[in-house]
Amino acid sequence: MCLAIPGKIQSIQTLYNGTVKMAKVSFGGIIKEASLEMVPAAAVGDYVLVHVGVAISKVNEEEAAKVFSYLKEAGELDELYDTEMNIEVLNYKDTN
């Protein structure tokens, strides 16, 4: 429940005159929306730790890859799949 999953920012959309920044974040190929309001300095290509749709901290690429592979091996990524909202699954590409 307090899991935070690292992903790579693919694109950023600014809403409400720039007050809200939403990003499309790729988690090993699964794209989800995440708010960047807690990490306003994050840019396209950066890695962020995302918890329930909100990026809570920036991480470097190496850390992101290690944590993601750990979570994947450990079978901890269910929350990316188990929900009813629109989940776009693109061509599956591993982050490693």
Binding site: V20, S35, H51, I56
Partner: peptide, 19 residues
């Protein structure tokens, strides 16, 4: 529900709804 980790997301949902 949640601990401090989840509070920003829940709070943000109210802020978004309000905006």
């Amino acid at each position: 529900v949640g601990f401090e980790t989840t509070a920003p997301a829940n709070a943000l949902s109210v802020i978004h709804a309000h905006r």
